[in-house]
Amino acid sequence: MDTLAETRQTAVTSEDITDEALMLRVQGGDKDAFRLLVGRHIDRIVGTSRRIVGAADAEDVAQDVFLRVWTARAQWAPGQARFRTWLYRVAVNRCIDHTRRARPASIDDVPEIEDDAPGPLDACERNEDANRLHSAMEHLSEQQRTAITLYYHESLTAAEVAEIMGLRLNAVESLLKRGRQKLRTVLK
């Protein structure tokens, strides 16, 4: 307990501190530690949300994810799940909630993806590829889209995807297989 208390009391000064150590401070109500965690993961969560719910709502969903992380911070148990896995679980559930509430989006509603790359031609090509992929992903079921995003975009293992989605490994393997087969047809 002493170690835990010391961890919580030490000021947040370094980027080297682990997510789990930051989360312990967050559980003690430390908003500076939370700011650091948000800064570390916001790009990743916006990217994941963009692929699951679409670009138009990705930032709103990401905000919702981190607000949920804050309010549910007491539920995270160190040693039981890595913070990153837990964060993805929150993100996937928020994405599902969002798609259940949202109206079907028109392709005209989807903004172009903002790009800070220096070369305009390169940026244009990357946007084109990304937009093509987004359109193809819309042909997948929400569950297939989630599994494909976590496995390929976030480079998680099938076992980690299963843990995040609350499914058995063979169910995730089936989702990856059928999702990929559909994408292969659509992207031809």
Binding site: I42, E114, A117, A130, L187
Partner: peptide, 20 residues
């Protein structure tokens, strides 16, 4: 197909990340 699925989209700009 893997290379398409792994396309890294540009991240948030610093200003946008700060605002968010």
């Amino acid at each position: 197909l893997d290379s398409v699925l792994r396309i890294r989209e540009p991240g948030l700009s610093d200003a946008r990340r700060r605002r968010l």
